[in-house]
Nucleic acid binder design. Structure first.
Ligand SMILES: [Mn+2]
Ligand SMILES: [Mn+2]
Ligand SMILES: [Zn+2]
Ligand SMILES: [Zn+2]
Lengths: 142, 142
DNA sequence: CACTTATTGATAATCGTTCTCATATTGTGA
DNA sequence: TCACAATATGAGAACGATTATCAATAAGTG
């Protein structure tokens, strides 16, 4: 956790970005709370702790952290986006339960390699990937 | 194309769904135009041909066709959704060029199998998948 | 043809996200 | 330490794609 905060602060310093109170609050909350979260959710958590920041600042900060490669935005269906920090985590994908909302993370060497091969064949330079599987989780099919 | 129209009309008849002028227009336009399209785009094309339907009807009809498994909605980044008809087409994924917007379709047995295996391991019942690769196409990296 | 039921159009509402801009804070270098 | 330029913030307006509303209209059955 300390290493993570440090990595983030280094990123901010490298560019002409100021480490404000609000950004600290948002980053701390992100690292402390559950893995996948929405901006509104994070904002509400802070608010409940008496830490009031603007919704706009939450969005702006998350965007900043994405630019720095510290946070990833995941599309979980129609109009549902979640964020998660990816400090020290391997690139992974998600299975999304359409009933209970459960998220199952997965990663697979074989898929990664096939995917790499396919894009090379097309002369396609990969920047990011987005792979979701929608359906019902174990609990919800029983 | 005829077979496709027929398949769609069969789907409509099977349920208590009426084959209205507007729905015919939308389906014809979809089959006649390019593969991936947005609702607004389809609406505009019809309008330019003097065929006026409500935007709402375009959305409603596409939704209907998705239910019938005749159309698929593809998420191409943040707030960009496209539709495509999947009549007689294998399930495929897309590489999306972030510069020129090009779409490269791909499908791969190996990935499908790994994915199937992974979801089985989790006891996860798959309903749909969504796999996109973002980056730069051949033309845009040169 | 008549009648029931589904569908349409126009536009208001929604909702997550971004924009605006006056005010406040940060970090620098004197 | 202090002053100052550069950045960042908050509050709420604006946005834009999609969905909801509901009175008027059309489809299809028999
Ligand atoms: Mn995850
Ligand atoms: Mn396609
Ligand atoms: Zn579930
Ligand atoms: Zn391109």
């Amino acid at each position: 956790m300390l290493a993570e905060v440090e990595k983030i602060e280094n990123f901010l310093k490298q560019r002409q970005i100021k480490l404000t109170e609000e950004r600290k609050l948002i980053i701390d909350e992100m690292l402390a709370s559950q893995r996948h979260f929405g901006p509104e959710e994070l904002w509400e958590h802070l608010r409940q702790k008496g830490k009031r920041v603007s919704r706009a600042t939450v969005y702006r900060t998350l965007e900043l952290l994405i630019e720095g490669g510290l946070v990833k935005k995941v599309c979980l269906g129609e109009h549902c986006f979640r964020y998660e920090h990816i400090l020290g985590r391997k690139n992974h994908s998600h299975m999304v339960c359409l009933k209970c909302g459960a998220l199952i993370e997965f990663l697979d060497e074989a898929i990664d390699e096939r995917q790499k091969l396919l894009s090379q064949q097309q002369g396609f330079e990969v920047l990011s990937r987005c792979f979701q599987i929608f359906g019902y989780c174990k609990n919800c099919t029983q």
